[in-house]
């Protein structure tokens, strides 16, 4: 229960921490696109270097990043196996029964793993580790505001997201507490088959739902007590403003994009199929 680091904010003081959340969102989108643009070994090496540089600049311990990768370990292993055995090529490296491994398969597997890892690390370093959930939803709301012209309830969505994010740690804590209480009465969550285990979770899920609904009611009343009436006419204490560092960061990203495109074309060491 305590290992959920994907999407967890680590307070800090680096340039990435201080960036405007809107700029960071744009940065992340560009970064994700560029990961899929990079097709050659040289381009991916370059992107890895940029990502590692950014990771170092945040001052967050490398161990934290490693923990962030752990939940997607399964996806990485699955992709490796799929690419290794399913890719056909010219140069056969290994053959045993129906298993054929080609040089292209090995290359593809390595490149895909690098891509997925970069994807996760990138979104961690640009967004979730360095942006507090509140400023993230503020940024999102501000970026999506034009959509409210066509009657998309942008403010409501962002409020829902803010509340959901705010209560994830609370719910985790509560789940821990209820599980402990039921364990103290001899509940057994770790043995038996699938059905038995699912049944064993009922004494945890029921109180969890009951208290979540109760909490939602209380929160709604508390918000109304403070005169919450939706986004209409709401002013903000923290107004988002772009700074010079946002421009610098976007500049670095633009250079990276250019470098990746050039590396793709002029240094095509191995190109992903």
């Amino acid at each position: 229960m305590r290992d959920i680091t994907l999407g967890q904010y680590f307070p800090g003081n680096s340039a990435l921490h201080k960036m405007d959340p809107r700029a960071k969102l744009i940065l992340t989108v560009i970064f994700i696109v560029v990961i899929f643009v990079a097709r050659s070994v040289s381009a991916l090496l370059l992107l890895s270097a940029v990502t590692i540089g950014m990771m170092c600049s945040t001052g967050i311990s490398p161990r934290v990043y490693l923990r962030g990768i752990k939940p997607i370990m399964f996806v990485i292993v699955f992709t490796t196996i799929l690419n290794l055995f399913m890719t056909r090529g010219d140069e056969l490296l290994f053959e045993w029964g129906i298993i054929h491994i080609y040089r292209d398969g090995v290359n593809n597997a390595i490149l895909m793993v690098v891509r997925i890892t970069l994807l996760v690390l990138g979104s961690c370093v640009f967004l979730s580790y360095t942006t507090s959930p509140i400023s993230l939803t503020d940024g999102l709301e501000s970026l999506l505001r034009p959509l409210s012209k066509i009657h998309v309830p942008v403010h409501e969505f962002s409020m829902i997201m803010t509340i959901a994010l705010r209560f994830i740690p609370t719910l985790i804590e509560e789940t821990d507490k209820i599980m402990s209480a039921q364990k103290a009465r001899g509940a057994d969550f770790s043995s038996g088959g699938l059905i038995k285990r699912a049944k064993a979770l009922l004494p945890v899920l029921i109180p969890l739902f009951v208290s979540a609904f109760k909490r939602a009611d209380e929160l709604a009343v508390a918000m109304e007590c403070r005169c919450y009436r939706g986004g209409e006419g709401r002013t903000r204490m923290k107004v988002l403003r772009y700074h010079a560092r946002d421009g610098v960061m976007l500049g670095i990203m633009a250079l990276t994009v250019a470098a990746v495109v050039i590396a793709n074309i002029y240094v095509p060491i191995y190109r992903l199929r």
Partner: peptide, 11 residues
């Protein structure tokens, strides 16, 4: 063991 505020264990 009766935990703190044990009401939430009722299900």
């Amino acid at each position: 063991l009766v935990m703190q505020y044990p009401e939430y264990q009722l299900f």
